[in-house]
């Protein structure tokens, strides 16, 4: 299970005159959760559909475990997917929905009961799916994705419509799936949903990858150096500048420092005996990092539209 991955390479696709995918390239590795993030219309869903063989790309390849999805004999035992939780026949029960999927993969009734249990749906298995809330449909979609015990999972906006409890459940669930060595690709247009969940993020905009990095790396880059402190000493700024930082002074005596870490600042000031208080490093959130990265794409799009 460890060496299999999903590889997307140079996908291009056009819908009418609109370029939906513009050289989309990234990989989804097993054993970790890869967040697939971008504004609406960035090409996330289209990419997933191309991976699953539902849409055809004009050029580029999408391979799962080294082969095209369409060549898989029992695809759900390789890749489980949840594209649209609402894609259900409303009058069919949850159990029957899973049952026909199981039959399509040569799986039995037992497997259906197992995934119903895993998704916490056993109690409502006999109810018609049409009466399900969006959160319950998401759970049913997850159950369907897990049916074939696949090594890879593709989930499009699985947090949509979930209540806070559901989101906590989903996060824990995805973590445990990745912990079992599965490759998990989770798309979202909200970076916040993925914070504390994803190990790796692929940020996309306008059909191409803007950033492809570990979460830790992304945070480190985005938090590159803002530290603020309060001091009553007029010398502080000069000292810190002397230590190689650039300093901005606010009227209330707050200094905003870049170029030195919080630890370096504390030791520099302490050595001179300068009093200070409230040293705080700005830990960037994923959300900010994402906003910084996608601002260009979004702004460009807005400009393009207004033209």
């Amino acid at each position: 299970m460890t060496d299999k991955m999903i590889e997307v390479n140079g996908l291009r696709k056009r819908f009418g005159g609109h370029l939906a995918l513009d050289g989309m390239t990234f990989g989804v590795h097993s054993g970790r959760i890869t967040g697939f993030v971008g504004p609406n219309g960035a090409g996330k869903s289209t990419t997933m559909r191309v991976i699953l063989g539902l849409d055809r790309a004009e050029s580029g390849t999408a391979l799962v475990g080294g082969v095209p999805y369409r060549s898989l004999k029992r695809p759900l035992t390789h890749v489980g997917s949840l594209l649209d939780a609402g894609a259900l026949q409303p009058s069919r029960t949850a159990r029957d929905h899973l049952l026909w999927l199981a039959h399509s993969q040569g799986l039995g009734r037992n497997r259906v009961e197992e995934v119903l249990e895993q998704a916490g749906l056993s109690a409502v298995a006999r109810r018609r799916a049409g009466g399900f809330s969006l959160g319950m449909r998401q759970r049913l979609g997850i159950a369907a994705a897990l049916l074939g015990d696949p090594w890879a999972l593709l989930l499009d906006e699985p947090f949509n419509g979930m209540d806070p409890e559901g989101i906590v459940w989903m996060r824990g669930f995805l973590r445990s799936l990745a912990g079992q060595g599965r490759a998990v690709l989770v798309s979202s247009h909200l970076m916040g949903e993925l914070q504390g969940t994803a190990d790796h993020v692929v940020i996309v905009g306008r059909g191409r990858v803007i950033a492809d990095s570990s979460v830790a790396g992304l945070l480190a880059r985005a938090s590159s150096g803002l530290v603020s402190l309060r001091t009553s000493s007029p010398e502080a700024a000069a000292v810190l500048t002397g230590a190689g930082a650039s300093v901005r002074e606010a009227e209330d005596g707050t200094l905003t420092v870049t170029g030195l870490t919080a630890e370096q600042i504390v030791s520099a000031l302490s050595a001179r005996g300068i009093p200070f208080a409230e040293v705080s490093a700005h830990r960037a959130t994923l959300e900010q990092a994402y906003m910084d990265l996608t601002r260009d794409a979004v702004e460009f799009r807005a400009a393009e539209v207004s033209r």
């Binding site: 695809p75 997917s81 649209d84 026949q89």
Partner: peptide
Amino acid sequence: RGLIRTTLAA
């Protein structure tokens, strides 16, 4: 309701 995608994915 887009069930065809589930069908064709299977």
